[in-house]
Amino acid sequence: MTLLEVRGLSVHYGAVQAVHEVDFTVEEGAVVSLLGANGAGKTSTIKAICGAAPYRGSIRFRGRSLPQNAARVRAAGVGHVPEGRHVFGGLTVADNLRLGGWGKRRDRSSEIYQLFPRLAERRRQLAGTLSGGEQQMLAIGRALMGEPDLLLLDEPTLGLAPVLCDEIFDRIRDVSAMGSTLVLVQQHTSRALALADYVLVMRGGRVIARGIPDDFADEEALSAAYLGDEMPHGGLNNLEKT
C-alpha cells in the first residue's frame, strides 16, 4: 500500500529553485534512501514533506493531501528528525521526549528508553550537555514519541564518529524492524544502501536515478550519478532517469 505519494514537487527559496518537479512514492513498511551530494535538494524535499518549507506540487499521505504546516503534518502521522538534530539544549532529555509526545495521550517514553538505554541514564540531564550521538538518539526518540506512521530522518549521522554512526544505524534498523516506514536522507551511501528497500539519487534538485540497492552496487556508477559524470557502461543505464 502506498503511504506517501509525491508528485511534481518544487521548492523555491526566493528566486532560487532548490527542488524541480520531483516524483516518488513510499510504500508502507519500506525504507527509502534519498541520496545525493550537498545541495542536491534532499533536505528541501524532506522539509516540504514535513510542512517546514513551502512548495508547489502534490504531497499525499495515506491518500490525503498533507497541509503545509509542520504541526499538522506531525499530527497526521509524519515524524521528522531534522538535520542538525535541533534538540532543545536547555531542556532535560525527559522534557524533550515529553514535547515529542505533544497531543498524544499515550506516553511512549518507556519504549524510547528501552530503545535508547543511554537516554534513560541521562533522562534528567540537559540535552545541551549530551554528546552528538546521544543528541541524535534523542532527536530520533523525540520524533518516535509522536507515534509516526512515517519517519523522515535527515542526515542522522552527520558529524558523528564512525562508531556512533554504526550505533545510530543499528537503532534505525530496530525502528524499521518494528514496522515503521522510513525515508532516510544520507550523503554517505554504504550504510544507507544496506538499510534501504528503494533508493533515489538526487542532484541539482532533481531525482536523477532510482532503483533497488542492488542497482547501485557498482560504486563507479553511483559516483557518476553523484558527480554528474557520464554514466559508465551498464551501471545506472538501466535505471529510470528523470
Binding site: 514535513c50 509542520a70 504541526a71 503534518v73 521528522h80 531534522p82 535541533h86 534538540v87 505533544w102
Partner: peptide, 12 residues
C-alpha cells in the same frame, strides 16, 4: 530557546 527547532519538531 529556538522557534525554528520547535517548528521542525512539529510543535504548534
Amino acid at each position: 530557546e529556538s522557534r525554528e527547532s520547535a517548528e521542525l519538531a512539529g510543535l504548534p
